[in-house]
Design a protein around this nucleic acid. Structure first.
Lengths: 237, 237
DNA sequence: CAGTGGTCTAGACCACGTG
DNA sequence: ACGTGGTCTAGACCACTGA
């Protein structure tokens, strides 16, 4: 026996779905009938079907049956690391500023802060091959045990900053990606003409209670940043 | 009994991982010892662990044990639909051109085409509230049964175009995202000054044999496109 | 060698949806 | 009432790891 039975069964069904033999909305044979067809126990069949459902091929409904799903054609797996992208790799960072501030109103709003709550602002420049490629802002809500030592702040990504005092498994993240022109400060910091395009990635972090704990905005020179995403195909990666 | 046992067990372990009680690299108690602790059969424990592994919390190694994983802090779930984003929704498209062409060398290269292979080129404009918001190019390798009827090409996204003759379950996709300035043609088509930034999304489609079957490039006005991504947290969504 | 996870079985009871 | 999937058990044998 080469492959385990449950994988053979799963592959046979997947193949029928991929080649159009089974279409979205169609029903899969019942678990008991699959047991009979393949001469295996029900737990083995169920393992196959569970695999197919985690991979997005099917969905099961108690009392009714299992059905081929509409594929999630809008979902992609995006790889994002502040310091590495398809074009450049940040090999040096410069810490411009770390201070406690009253954040600008947009940030206050975005982080659900009361009007007089001060937070930590970190400004950094990212370099690649001695070229300035990005300007980076972080607004962090202060918690006890947080890294305020420059060494800890200067290097590393936003998730790494908070991982010192919280498990990353408890952190939720949201990104928004857009193209903008630099304002005066950014143009100055990056030594840009103000009509060069920027790729702007806004990163928002939440704790497990879904309360916002930080906001990061990275302004990349357009010619130094390209992001990559791909279709998941097997949700387990 | 409120939650099924396997979910209770999984939640207890997840909680220990989230609150730092169990850290990346730590080993989970063996399946047999978990059976004893929770007074359940081994299959039930295994179901819990399988759940944790599909959600990225742990990994199991035959003969050794199960271990807390390093979290995938670089992976995000990106939602991308050519016609809908955080800022605008395309409510009208205009088909500028459909023709059979020898593609430009970059495209030929990207699609692994022989030097004299002709393909279909589709040019479209996307509108939102009667405003031109994006210029869209598709290069499609021709296959029998493919939609060449204008009605089918004019509307819909790239995946939808190919879904007429292939199951989307057999399609793999890759995206790259960047910020650029418009070249003359794009500036003309979108009636832009040529220093307005564009968000450029390049979409490459592959068949199940990983052979490229199409390339799409969408140039969005920067002020009309913002993309959204978030941390997966439970890979099954 | 003993302990680990990986596969598999042949039952069982349940809640659900449909006739 | 019947068939569906959802949960669970108490075994079994295997391949792998490490002492």
């Amino acid at each position: 026996m080469e492959l385990p039975k449950y994988l053979q069964i799963a592959e046979e069904i997947k193949e029928k779905i991929r080649n159009g033999n089974l279409k979205p909305g169609d029903s899969i044979p019942s678990e008991n009938s699959l047991c009979a067809t393949y001469n295996v126990s029900r737990m083995t069949v169920r393992k196959s079907l569970f695999l197919l459902s985690t991979e997005g091929y099917i969905a099961s409904i108690a009392g009714k049956g299992s059905f081929v799903k509409e594929p999630d054609s809008e979902k992609y797996l995006l790889y994002y690391n502040e310091l590495v992208n398809l074009i450049s790799r940040i090999d040096r960072t410069r810490l411009l500023e770390v201070k406690i501030v009253l954040p600008p109103p947009e940030v206050m709003n975005s982080l659900h802060l009361s009007s007089n709550r001060k937070i930590i602002l970190v400004k950094r420049l990212f370099y690649s091959n001695s070229e300035k490629v990005a300007y980076d802002l972080k607004y962090l809500i202060y918690y006890k045990g947080m890294p305020v030592v420059e060494k800890e702040i200067q290097y590393g990504t936003f998730p790494e900053m908070v991982s010192k005092y919280t498990s990353l498994f408890a952190i939720q993240k949201e990104l928004t990606i857009s193209a903008q022109l630099p304002d005066d400060e950014i143009a100055r910091q990056l030594s840009l003409y103000n009509h060069q395009p920027l790729l702007v990635v806004e990163q928002k972090l939440f704790n497990y209670q879904k309360e916002p704990i930080g906001l990061g905005i990275t302004y990349y020179r357009g010619d130094y940043c390209k992001l990559y995403a791909r279709s998941p195909f097997s949700a387990l990666e």
